[in-house]
Simulated assay, not measured.
Amino acid sequence: MSGENGLQRIYFSEAMKKRLTFLIRSLENGGAEKQLITLVKNLDQKKFDLSLICFYGGGVLEKEIEKNSHIRLISLEKKGRWDLVKFWYRLFFYITEIQPDILYGYLGASHLMTILLKIFNPSTLMVWGVRSSYVDFSRYDWLESFIFKLQCFFSRFADLIIVNSYAGRDYHVGHGFPNSKMIVVPNGIDTDRYQPKPDLRAKVRSEWGVARETFLIGRIGRLDPMKDYPTFLKAAALFYKQRKDARFVCVGSGTDNYLDELLQLAKQLGIAEQVIWAGSRSDMPAVYSALDIACSSSYGEGFPNVIGEAMACGVPCVVTNVGDSAWIVGDTGIIVTPQDPEALASALLSCGERNLDEMGQKARIRIVENFSVDQLVKQTTEVLWQKV
């Protein structure tokens, strides 16, 4: 009897499985892309038949998907911005072949694709994944602003909009997104991967030429205007005036032009020798563990993964009050107003005088209890199954 019941349960599960397809521009090294991979890898194979379609192939994070044979990875081999006809043909071909029950567009341009495809696939649940809050479009290419305006208009045709932060929800509702279709599902932090690595702390510091007794403050994130590295550097200069035992590390990549601007600013501030430009790193738990304090100086965020990751690694955080940063940190760190170098420097100095080990322990507990991958997967699964 138990064997028959087991077979029946398996059969029922297979019969009820939903074809879930994600659509994203690329799998380059970014916070949203990493979060998508975390979600896809952990979704229940018994509930979903999973596919992931990328506009552009060759992203550095693709190898994470390739390790999972149950996830079908498809590249549309887009050649550039204006490679539209062949791109659309390939997209239409694969969607017709897969016939997804749910098409989940991740980030701007992918959202618009779901609306076009809805014309030909009216029974497919079209889902948007919104990953940002405030964006200063004056700092970006004109196309970014245009795509956002199109999203604001066409958002009424999406079936469901999943946003990763309350700040992001409020911002988009304020720009015309339908509140009735929006639901907040916070990011999930892999606390098994992101945990303190005291054995690697000295190794990473040695690579950077940082002594054990040096006070090290890290700014983690891509070199992007929204991350406001200039404010971080100005705060670092003020901090260094008070504590000569300090050094600062910036971990992330960006355009050569923007990096040159930041290098010049560090030189003008007199801290060029105190700032380490580490570029992108793949061993982030070890990188976080090398820090005494992690700092986020952004003036625009949704749910910043780097804050949750640093906290999971037991590192106290000083962050600007943007997006859901304050909610993530809670009472385990210090929150300051954005674009205020003096306030940021003061907060860093105050944090440095506290019991950092105790703060770090509280920070990790907060992430484990409130922002786990299990919660991300559970909430996403429940939302999708309720709607499909």
Rank of each mutant, 00 (worst) to 15 (best):
residue 139 R to N: 13
residue 139 R to D: 15
residue 139 R to F: 13
residue 140 Y to N: 02
residue 141 D to M: 08
residue 142 W to T: 10
residue 143 L to K: 14
residue 143 L to C: 06
residue 144 E to D: 15
residue 146 F to Y: 11
residue 148 F to T: 07
residue 150 L to C: 12
residue 150 L to T: 03
residue 150 L to D: 04
residue 151 Q to A: 01
residue 151 Q to F: 01
residue 152 C to Y: 01
residue 153 F to C: 14
residue 153 F to E: 12
residue 153 F to D: 10
residue 154 F to S: 10
residue 154 F to T: 11
residue 155 S to P: 00
residue 155 S to G: 03
residue 157 F to M: 12
residue 157 F to N: 05
residue 158 A to E: 00
residue 159 D to Q: 01
residue 160 L to W: 03
residue 160 L to M: 12
residue 161 I to W: 00
residue 162 I to P: 00
residue 163 V to T: 09
residue 163 V to F: 02
residue 163 V to Q: 01
residue 164 N to K: 07
residue 164 N to E: 08
residue 164 N to L: 00
residue 166 Y to F: 15
residue 169 R to E: 14
residue 169 R to Y: 09
residue 170 D to C: 05
residue 172 H to S: 01
residue 172 H to C: 00
residue 172 H to N: 01
residue 173 V to L: 00
residue 174 G to I: 07
residue 174 G to V: 08
residue 175 H to P: 00
residue 176 G to L: 01
residue 177 F to G: 00
residue 177 F to A: 00
residue 178 P to E: 03
residue 178 P to K: 00
residue 179 N to G: 09
residue 180 S to W: 07
residue 181 K to Q: 03
residue 182 M to K: 00
residue 183 I to S: 13
residue 183 I to A: 06
residue 185 V to G: 01
residue 186 P to M: 10
residue 186 P to C: 07
residue 188 G to F: 07
residue 189 I to S: 01
residue 190 D to L: 10
residue 191 T to W: 04
residue 192 D to W: 13
residue 192 D to N: 14
residue 194 Y to K: 03
residue 195 Q to G: 04
residue 195 Q to T: 15
residue 195 Q to R: 15
residue 196 P to G: 12
residue 197 K to Q: 14
residue 197 K to T: 11
residue 197 K to W: 15
residue 198 P to L: 10
residue 199 D to P: 07
residue 200 L to P: 00
residue 201 R to A: 11
residue 201 R to I: 09
residue 201 R to S: 08
residue 202 A to R: 12
residue 202 A to S: 12
residue 202 A to I: 09
residue 203 K to Y: 13
residue 205 R to K: 06
residue 206 S to W: 05
residue 207 E to A: 03
residue 207 E to C: 07
residue 208 W to Q: 03
residue 210 V to A: 04
residue 210 V to E: 05
residue 211 A to V: 11
residue 214 T to V: 15
residue 215 F to V: 13
residue 215 F to A: 11
residue 216 L to S: 02
residue 216 L to R: 00
residue 216 L to A: 05
residue 216 L to N: 06
residue 216 L to K: 03
residue 217 I to C: 06
residue 218 G to V: 08
residue 220 I to W: 05
residue 221 G to R: 07
residue 221 G to L: 03
residue 221 G to Q: 06
residue 222 R to H: 12
residue 222 R to C: 08
residue 223 L to E: 00
residue 224 D to G: 05
residue 224 D to C: 10
residue 225 P to Y: 05
residue 226 M to V: 14
residue 227 K to Q: 10
residue 228 D to N: 13
residue 229 Y to W: 11
residue 230 P to N: 09
residue 231 T to E: 02
residue 231 T to Q: 07
residue 233 L to D: 02
residue 233 L to F: 08
residue 233 L to H: 06
residue 237 A to R: 02
residue 239 F to V: 15
residue 242 Q to D: 09
residue 243 R to V: 09
residue 244 K to D: 05
residue 245 D to N: 13
residue 246 A to D: 02
residue 246 A to Q: 04
residue 246 A to N: 02
residue 247 R to P: 02
residue 249 V to R: 02
residue 249 V to M: 05
residue 249 V to D: 07
residue 250 C to D: 03
residue 250 C to F: 07
residue 253 S to T: 09
residue 254 G to S: 04
residue 254 G to T: 07
residue 254 G to A: 03
residue 255 T to A: 06
residue 256 D to Q: 14
residue 258 Y to R: 08
residue 259 L to Q: 12
residue 260 D to G: 15
residue 260 D to T: 15
residue 261 E to P: 06
residue 262 L to V: 12
residue 264 Q to C: 12
